[in-house]
Design a protein around this nucleic acid. Structure first.
Length: 552
RNA sequence: GCGCCUGUAGCUCAGCGGAUAGAGCAUCGGUCUUCGGAACCGAGGGUCGGGGGUUCGAAUCCCUUCAGGCGCGCCA
């Protein structure tokens, strides 16, 4: 149990006691929130419960605070407890307990920070899911990093996580792509042709056309158009998907499952989902099309599911897809990470899910806002269907995967972000990314040296630690489980890099002030502390999907 | 026009009901005979876009207004 939760429980016990003894009126108790005060003068944890309770109880908050403190049960974690005006209770962790945690962390090793919050809940996390009709760009990278880090954290928080990439291989964009490719093939053989409306203009289509001709043979173009298109579609999709997979791999992003949209139709999910909607009265036929009556669920308009030419819309397959996630595969929770351009899709997807009879709370949709890419002062527009683009691959190759991950992660998904390529590169030596990794490498180096010098710190006793910088470092280390909880509950991984920075700072400060290597009990204790700090740093980096280097 | 997101230090961003608003970068000044200086210590820099309100208390909640982004397809 997290320390803050334990303190909250102690407070509740004290409050109940106070009510039983008639020291507090029997009013409803507000939740005993325990938070981390901004200033260290206010202790390790603080609660404003007396301020809240004071109002409803009609008693001076300061008096409430004193009453609660007097009745507070003792606990091994708990050192001093102070009352502060106008009605705060400040908790200071017991020094011995704090120091014992060094050993606890070393025992837990890489599992330090793990929680049982999810209790094995089966959770599916779907992200990236870019149409396989072009290379990944910078914005996709953001979603990829967000998703993979979140998957790590949710797994650490006790969820049974499955990550998935949804391949849109059935829609009209795929046809559009195949046709664009076809046109480029014709052109390459000196047979001018007209690009389709909204065709894919990127130069990669030309390159792909060359490859297609080489691989499939130029005779392809003499076959009936339908056959050629089908052939090119298969070829193009395969190539694009391979490229996408490789690009993601470069960023350290992998998926458990690559799910084909087509399979929804091949395996009968689609009609089942539609039947489900029909049976629950959410379908209507108008103007030759089949509509989802989302207005019945508070949406501002209905949406077409099956066009009057009989083909299903993207929304319709997405409904079948979610039918499959929840009802066929039985995930208890589903999280989708979408780009800002899917904003309008959110409320109707939620409506669709509840129309299928699934509690909409089981579906979370995270919208990752736009990434504006800059080279120096110049803004680079990213567009897939036309013009040139900065690919994710270029970005990763220029900046490196760890720096990419760190930068993407440190902004909240809801905020648009600027990614300045020049800065990210040029910044490298002064980059926060390296600052954190450097702390880890530094510890590794110290421990190496210690071993070379034949030092043995196995019996080092952390209870000997007393320097303020040592205690501050331990306090930072103890925060990791809370950060994991925060991220798992809020689905906001951006807390991770900020924590990593604070942890690294605490270590560097300690290192500067406290000589580690040497003989004697103090050194042995400090070596233990450094080793534990390394564990926490490594875990934090790994949760972010970054390397924890032994040397740099 | 309507919906969602965002306006916090020169720049990029945290903080999203609590006690003097934080970090990184940039700027300026120190540390420099010991374990990796990719480091440490310190300083300056802010009417938290503006205006109302709720509250003992608001950057944080509500209303309004301004600015930017993204949506509002029988595209995905």
């Amino acid at each position: 149990m997290l320390v803050k939760d334990k303190l909250a429980r102690l407070l509740m016990e004290a409050a109940l006691q106070a009510q039983q003894r008639g020291l507090l009126p029997p009013v409803a108790l507000p939740p005993a929130t325990v938070e981390r005060p901004a200033s260290p003068e206010h202790g390790d944890y603080a609660s404003s419960l007396p301020l809240k309770l004071g109002r409803t109880a009609g008693i001076k908050p300061l008096t409430v605070a004193e009453t609660l403190v007097a009745l507070l049960p003792s606990a091994p974690e708990l050192g001093q407890v102070q009352v502060a005006s106008p009605g705060f209770i400040n908790f200071i962790l017991k020094r011995e307990w704090l120091l014992e945690q060094v050993a606890t962390i070393l025992e837990q090793g890489e599992s330090y920070g793990s929680l049982d919050l999810g209790q094995g809940t089966r959770l599916q996390l779907e992200f990236v899911s870019v149409n396989p009709t072009g290379p990944l760009h910078v914005g996709h990278g953001r979603g990829a990093v967000l998703g993979s880090a979140l998957a790590n954290v949710l797994a650490a928080a006790g969820y049974q996580v499955e990550t998935e990439y949804y391949i849109n291989d059935a829609g009209s964009q795929v046809e559009n792509f195949a046709r664009s490719l076809y046109v480029r093939c014709l052109e390459a053989r000196g047979r001018p042709a007209q690009m389709p409306e909204g065709g894919y203009m990127g130069s990669y289509v030309r390159d792909l056309a060359q490859e297609a001709l080489k691989e499939l043979g130029a005779s392809l173009l003499d076959r009936p158009e339908g056959e050629a298109l089908a052939e090119l579609s298969r070829f193009g999709l395969k190539r694009m998907l391979d490229a996408i997979r490789q690009d993601l791999e470069l960023l350290g992003v992998r998926f458990h499952v690559w799910f084909n949209e087509k399979s929804l139709f091949q395996e009968g999910q689609f009609p089942k989902a539609m039947a489900q909607l029909q049976g629950r009265g959410f379908l209507a036929t108008r103007e030759g099309a089949t509509w989802f009556v989302s207005t019945a669920l508070g949406n501002d308009k209905d949406n077409v599911l099956i066009r009057n030419d009989g083909t299903p819309t993207y929304f319709a397959s997405d409904i079948a897809y979610h039918y499959n996630k929840f009802l066929e595969r039985g995930f208890q929770r589903v999280i989708n990470i979408w780009g800002a351009d899917h904003q309008g899709h959110v409320s109707r997807m939620k409506a669709a899910v509840s129309a299928l009879g699934i509690e909409p709370e089981r579906l979370d949709i995270i919208i990752g806002q736009m990434v504006t890419l800059r080279r120096g002062g110049e803004v680079v527009r990213i567009s897939k269907r036309s013009g040139e683009l900065i690919t994710l691959r270029e970005l990763v190759e220029e900046v490196g995967p760890d720096a990419c991950r760190f930068v993407f992660l440190s902004r909240s998904a809801a905020a648009q972000m600027d990614f300045d390529l020049e800065l990210a590169k040029q910044e490298s030596p002064e980059n926060p990314v390296y600052y954190v990794q450097y702390a880890h490498a530094r510890i590794a180096s110290i421990l190496r040296l210690a071993r070379e010098q034949g030092l043995d710190w196995a019996r080092g006793d952390p209870l000997r630690l007393e320097h303020p910088a040592e205690l501050a470092l331990i306090r930072q280390m103890l925060l990791l489980p809370e950060v994991v909880e925060t991220v798992a509950l809020s689905l906001e991984p951006h807390h991770l890099p900020h924590y990593a920075l604070e942890l690294a700072t605490a270590f560097h400060t300690f290192y500067k002030q406290c000589r580690v290597l040497g003989k004697g009990p103090t050194s042995e204790a400090r070596l233990k502390l450094a080793e534990a700090a390394k564990v926490v740093l490594a875990r934090t980096l790994h949760l972010m999907g970054m390397a924890a280097p032994e040397s740099m």
